[in-house]
Computed example of a mutant assay.
Amino acid sequence: LASFRPPVKGARDFWLAFVGRSLLIFSYYMILNYQLYILENYIGQGKEAAAATISVMSVITMIVGLIGSIGSGAISDWIGRRKLPVIVASILLAVGYFLPWIMKSASSMMLFAGFAGLGYAVYGAVDQALNVDVLPSKEEAGKDLRILNIATTLGQMVGPIVTSVLVIAGGYNLVFPTAIAFAIVACIFIQLIRSTK
């Protein structure tokens, strides 16, 4: 039972990081898991065209993911800051969500792949370092990191569920602004952390 006990004492920054991480991943998977449906039902592509667009998007995401992961991790270590890259990541994600919302084209989804893919990679590169910085107890670091990793699974699971509810309630036009709002709120939570710059 002790191995499942979440941290309480001196864990303010830990929980801010947990909520911030959940919401940021939540926002990304709201759209990522629905790419095919967005292309078919929102953009208006047929199955073959949508499949071709997703292939291009996958390549774009892979390229910007490599660049973002390698570059931002090194820059974060060099400047000694974790929260600044999170601001950059949140802005990139928000721009990626905004473009398909206003442009409604296959090109805008490719831009989503570029901006949001880069933002997610930038965040991922500094995320674990930030998580280590907010651990309340070095003796229970492994247990607490495991709890922080639940935020990833939570975001990946709940994001698509919320998307389906929003689509039923009012269509895809509700999904994009909601994802933007979650990315901004996530950034605010992470900026409230005091134990790391």
Results as ranks from 00 to 15, higher is better:
residue 16 L to A: 11
residue 44 G to E: 08
residue 8 V to H: 07
residue 74 A to F: 13
residue 54 I to A: 06
residue 72 S to N: 10
residue 9 K to E: 15
residue 58 S to F: 14
residue 167 V to N: 07
residue 128 Q to A: 13
residue 168 I to N: 11
residue 165 V to M: 15
residue 171 G to H: 13
residue 175 V to S: 04
residue 128 Q to Y: 13
residue 149 N to A: 12
residue 12 R to W: 07
residue 58 S to Q: 12
residue 19 V to F: 13
residue 97 Y to K: 03
residue 157 M to R: 04
residue 121 A to G: 10
residue 125 A to R: 02
residue 178 T to M: 11
residue 146 R to D: 14
residue 97 Y to P: 00
residue 150 I to T: 15
residue 29 Y to F: 15
residue 106 A to K: 02
residue 131 N to Y: 01
residue 39 L to G: 00
residue 140 E to N: 12
residue 2 A to C: 09
residue 34 Y to K: 13
residue 193 I to G: 01
residue 10 G to C: 05
residue 131 N to D: 08
residue 16 L to R: 15
residue 190 I to P: 02
residue 195 S to E: 10
residue 48 E to G: 11
residue 113 A to H: 08
residue 70 I to E: 01
residue 114 G to H: 02
residue 122 V to L: 06
residue 94 A to F: 05
residue 115 F to Y: 07
residue 31 I to T: 12
residue 124 G to W: 02
residue 33 N to Y: 14
residue 179 A to T: 04
residue 67 I to P: 00
residue 32 L to S: 08
residue 86 V to L: 12
residue 104 K to E: 10
residue 152 T to W: 12
residue 5 R to T: 15
residue 115 F to S: 08
residue 196 T to H: 05
residue 37 Y to K: 09
residue 185 V to M: 11
residue 68 G to H: 03
residue 187 C to H: 03
residue 137 S to R: 11
residue 179 A to V: 09
residue 7 P to W: 08
residue 38 I to E: 04
residue 140 E to S: 14
residue 87 I to T: 12
residue 131 N to H: 08
residue 38 I to R: 05
residue 135 L to F: 06
residue 132 V to S: 05
residue 124 G to D: 01
residue 45 Q to D: 12
residue 148 L to A: 03
residue 2 A to H: 14
residue 15 W to M: 06
residue 38 I to M: 14
residue 63 I to T: 09
residue 41 N to S: 14
residue 126 V to S: 02
residue 79 I to W: 07
residue 160 P to W: 06
residue 106 A to V: 13
residue 124 G to H: 04
residue 109 M to W: 09
residue 68 G to F: 01
residue 51 A to E: 11
residue 93 L to Y: 09
residue 165 V to C: 00
residue 84 L to E: 13
residue 96 G to L: 02
